[in-house]
Amino acid sequence: MHSGQDSADPEPRIWGGTTLTERRETRRAALLEAALDLIGEAGAGAVTMRAVCRRANLTDRYFYESFTGRDDLLDVLYRLVADEFREPMTAFAALDSPTRDRELAQVLVDKVLEDPRKSRLFLVEPYSSTGLGQTTIAVMPTFTRLIQDHLFNHVTDPVARRMAALTMASGNAGMFSAWLNGSLKVTPEQVVDHLVEVITIYRSMYRG
Rank of each mutant, 00 (worst) to 15 (best):
R79A: 05
R79F: 03
L80K: 15
V81Q: 00
A82D: 02
A82I: 02
M89P: 06
T90I: 09
A93L: 07
A94Y: 00
L95P: 03
T99W: 07
R100N: 05
R102M: 09
R102W: 06
R102A: 09
E103H: 14
L104Y: 01
V109E: 02
V112Q: 08
R120N: 03
R120W: 04
R120V: 02
R120S: 04
L121I: 06
V124G: 01
E125T: 04
P126E: 04
Y127W: 12
Y127M: 09
T130F: 05
L132C: 00
G133L: 11
G133S: 11
Q134I: 12
T135C: 08
T136D: 12
A138I: 10
V139P: 03
M140L: 14
P141W: 06
F143I: 04
T144L: 09
D149H: 11
H150E: 06
H150R: 09
L151R: 01
F152S: 00
F152E: 00
N153S: 15
N153Q: 13
V155Q: 09
V155R: 07
T156I: 12
D157H: 06
P158Q: 06
V159T: 15
A160I: 12
R162E: 14
M163V: 14
A164R: 03
L166K: 13
L166G: 13
T167A: 14
S170V: 15
G171R: 00
G171S: 06
G171Y: 00
N172G: 15
N172D: 13
A173K: 13
A173R: 14
M175D: 05
F176K: 03
F176M: 05
S177F: 12
A178F: 04
W179L: 08
L180A: 02
N181G: 12
G182D: 08
G182H: 07
S183N: 14
S183M: 11
L184R: 06
L184N: 06
K185V: 13
V186S: 12
Q190N: 01
